[in-house]
Design a binder for these strands. Structure first.
Lengths: 224, 224
DNA sequence: TTTAAATTAGACCCTTTGGTTCAATTTGGA
DNA sequence: TCCAAATTGAACCAAAGGGTCTAATTTAAA
């Protein structure tokens, strides 16, 4: 809508000792986080349009008034949630790095991503819904920061291939495949549970799923 | 809500010659389809809650009144759409059958699924959103018909493995992986387009994507 | 032409919901 | 104790949207 600062009510606390001010802001930040967490889980479950501000406030244990005191509007709240989400979401790929053994690196990456699906299913689902619906709020982030990151990581994979450490694959499709499969276990957990009776919170199921995925994706990539 | 027939207004045409009646019903059915198509694309793009009955009626080129004459309620419309959707969606797996070469069969299946992602992206997206949100309307269908189907197909894969035609994998995870990746190209098309600049409607991109996916998934499954 | 079904426009109603306003109360540090 | 910030509850407003109803019009088969 208007300027992006408008989405959040950043109350500046004045006339306090630095120590106190710090403590205060921390408390405020915690409450903001609490609200955003509540919003995240409801948005993921019912969609943004299917969630009322009141529901969020109840789940966060604050009054509706108070919520609107922290966030200017529902849209502002959603934007805060989704922006923060993307940060968290892309972090693991960052650490996906240079000159280790490719199979091992990719194995680890799959593991980290699957752990994220297990530990942050709501994040995964909300991200999924946003992108499925055209990512109106994230499109800019996808076109530049994400693309840049992907290009960098692609280059690493290409190096591996050229060094004969990995069979030839298009790096982009490889990364998409890893994302698709690992996120699938969060996003489609209902379907998976309906069919297998289990989900990633079951440790044994997590382990077998992880090793199967690693096997499927990496099995054909080991150099001859 | 109440009985399931209530979701749809099935006008029974009386006192017409059989021929005429047939023609009529066909026309009605076509219109119903037109409305459902419109609903599908809007629901997929904006979510059910983000779509108004009026928008659907406009896209389908009928009046709101007329739409409500065909479908008792928005929920009834959605239920019709989603039910029909599941039928279409699972069809390819049916034909996934017995004693051909596993690699070839799986290759074909991947191709069919990727074609569906290319040709019916809205179906894929709506299915995705419904499942992500807990599949309240589909859960029964997932727990029984889908599970039954999956069990049957798993058995086929197990046979392949036991016959030494395929390396050992958990069939369920294999199938999930295929679904995850192929559907990803429809559901996350915005992200893919943001990164690669292309989508499946580009023939060259389709072909290279297909062969990469086949390579990634099946590369490690060929028996030694 | 007759008749029933199909279709439309539009008024209308009711509920939901995002957001505002405000007065009152609580909280915690100075 | 004093004060500003934090928090709440409640009334309230306006817009949106699902759904009903009705009167009028069109369509097409008999």
């Amino acid at each position: 809508m208007s300027k992006s600062e408008d989405q959040v009510n950043t109350k500046t606390v004045r006339a306090f000792s630095p120590k106190t001010q710090k403590r205060r802001e921390k408390a405020l930040q915690e409450k903001r986080t609490r609200i955003m967490d509540a919003a995240l889980s409801l948005f993921a479950k019912n969609g943004v349009n299917g969630t009322t501000v009141e529901q969020v406030s109840e789940l966060a244990n604050v009054s509706k008034s108070n919520l609107l005191y922290y966030f200017k509007s529902k849209e502002g709240l959603y934007l805060s949630v989704i922006t923060h989400l993307l940060d968290v979401w892309l972090t693991p790929l960052q650490s996906f790095s240079a000159e280790q053994d490719p199979i091992e690196t990719l194995s680890d990456y799959i593991k980290v991503k699957l752990e994220m699906s297990r530990d942050n299913p709501a994040e995964s689902k909300l991200f999924c819904m946003e992108v499925v619906q055209g990512a109106p709020l994230l499109i800019k982030e996808l076109e530049t920061p994400l693309k840049t990151l992907l290009d960098a990581k692609s280059a690493v994979i290409i190096e591996w291939i050229e060094a004969g450490k990995l069979k030839p694959v298009d790096p982009i499709h490889l990364i998409f495949s890893i994302w698709a499969i690992t996120q699938h276990y969060a996003d489609f957990s209902v379907q998976i549970k309906a069919v297998t009776g289990k989900d990633l919170s079951d440790p044994a199921f997590f382990e077998s799923t992880l090793s199967d995925i690693q096997h499927i994706i990496l099995g054909g990539l080991k150099p001859a």
